[in-house]
Design a protein around this nucleic acid. Sequence first.
DNA 1: CTTCGTGCAAAATTTTTGCACGAAG
DNA 2: CTTCGTGCAAAAATTTTGCACGAAG
Lengths: 147, 147
Amino acid sequence: MATTPDRLEKVILRLRERNCRITPQRIAILKAFLDSNEHPGIEQVYRQVQTRFPTTSLATVYKTVALLKEMGEILEIGFPDGQKRFDGNKPFPHPHIICEHCGVVLDPDTSQVDTLIAEIADNTGFKVTSHQIQLIGTCPSCLKNPF
Amino acid sequence: MATTPDRLEKVILRLRERNCRITPQRIAILKAFLDSNEHPGIEQVYRQVQTRFPTTSLATVYKTVALLKEMGEILEIGFPDGQKRFDGNKPFPHPHIICEHCGVVLDPDTSQVDTLIAEIADNTGFKVTSHQIQLIGTCPSCLKNPF
DNA sequence: CTTCGTGCAAAATTTTTGCACGAAG
DNA sequence: CTTCGTGCAAAAATTTTGCACGAAG
């Protein structure tokens, strides 16, 4: 599992506070996000949810994703190739590094993002509220086993 | 004009080297990219080109954009809200800062991108070949005149 | 019992493709 | 003259919407 069980409970609580109904579909979709470190896309979540609830419709996935995104419980990640994927485990801006060969996505640790933002804010006069940082390259494993 | 006239000539030369035909549509689409600092999207380029060549089709714009992208003469920028836009003036990875109120996009100067990449490469063992960095916030002008 | 969320189908977008004609070289 | 690129229309892919029924509370 990618998250503490806690996280699921907390989101359910927030749904309740909003007077949103707790349906099996919503739970399943939410779990699909929380249990995956693969930064899945809509289609991928849909297929995952369908294994347990075969009648779930794509429309419901879209609607639930919109809801969770609006609540800030999942973060949309625009991949450089145009794919739209989501991060349900760290739903706040953070850098990603993507292997262009095998597709793996990591959330690297770094102390430099704040420095970068501070410098750009300083140079432009912008107040920066959010960001999106994607690095593309080759992962260590693909470096060792070239295709 | 956003670029030196030079740039247009150079791209045309590269098209020729590839044995691609130099058509008025291609020139018009290319100019639309080179003459704009607004990081336009497909639809915006289409509308721009249509003012001079009303019969130009959207399919041609898509095809030409694919060609120029493949040649590395324009760079696709995935905006955080999912928009796909392009930069024809600096077709290499560089950071953008976007005002979420008025939509203005700047290419800020910074010396910190290399530092950030170096640290992440170091921490993950990836070889980094490209990147995409978008900062979102409020521009100085919108800070002064809140909506 | 009273909404709200779902599933379905239709619609609206967005992007891609096939093909015949006209243009570039 | 010989491709190649264009425009058109159709197709495919993606996302949104309207609505009636069933489920949550």
